[in-house]
Amino acid sequence: MSSDTPTTIKCPGCEDGEIVFDAQLLLAGTRFTCNSCSASICLSDNSKSTLATGLLRLDQMKQNLGSLKTAASRPKMN
C-alpha cells in the first residue's frame, strides 16, 4: 500500500483544532492527537480489516488510473 500525504480532520472534541493523521500509521495502531485540546483518535481492532481493504482498493484504483493516463498519452494510429 502506498504512503500518501497526511489527512487533516476537524477535531470532533473541541471543533476548533485539527487532527492530522496518516492512514497507514492509523492502521498500524498509532494514535493521533488534536493540536488544540489533546483529544485523540485511533483505530479499533474491529475496523482494521475495513481500512486495510479500503486502502488496498484505493491503491488499485490509483494504479488503474495511472495505466489509463499512460494509454491516453499514447493514442494508437490505425
Results as ranks from 00 to 15, higher is better:
K10E: 10
S3Y: 09
R57G: 01
T33H: 11
L43A: 04
P75V: 02
A23H: 02
C14I: 05
K69D: 12
A39C: 08
K69P: 01
D16W: 01
D16C: 00
P75K: 07
I41S: 03
L27P: 05
T7K: 13
N35S: 03
C14V: 03
N78E: 08
G66W: 04
S36M: 05
L65W: 09
L58K: 09
N35R: 02
T5K: 06
M1G: 11
G17W: 01
C37P: 06
T33M: 11
A72N: 15
P6D: 13
A39K: 06
P6E: 15
T8R: 12
L26R: 02
L55R: 12
L27T: 01
T7A: 08
C11F: 02
L27H: 07
S49N: 14
R31Q: 14
P75I: 05
T33L: 00
C34M: 06
Q60H: 11
I9H: 05
A28L: 10
A52Y: 07
T8Y: 00
A52E: 10
C37W: 02
R74S: 11
T70D: 11
L68W: 05
L27V: 03
N64A: 15
N64H: 05
Q24N: 15
G13N: 10
F21E: 03
P12C: 05
L65A: 15
S73F: 01
S40I: 00
E15K: 14
G29Y: 03
S49I: 09
K10C: 13
I9F: 01
C11G: 04
L26F: 04
L26G: 04
Q60V: 04
C42F: 08
M1E: 09
G29M: 10
D59C: 05
T5N: 09
T53A: 13
T5C: 05
D16E: 15
R31A: 15
D16H: 08
S3I: 14
P12E: 13
N46F: 02
I41Y: 01
N46M: 11
A52R: 12
T33D: 04
K48C: 06
T70H: 10
N35E: 06
D45W: 02
T53M: 07
F21I: 10
S3N: 12
Q60I: 01
D4W: 03
S67W: 00
G54Q: 12
A23I: 02
D4L: 12
L51R: 12
N64K: 15
L56G: 03
S3G: 12
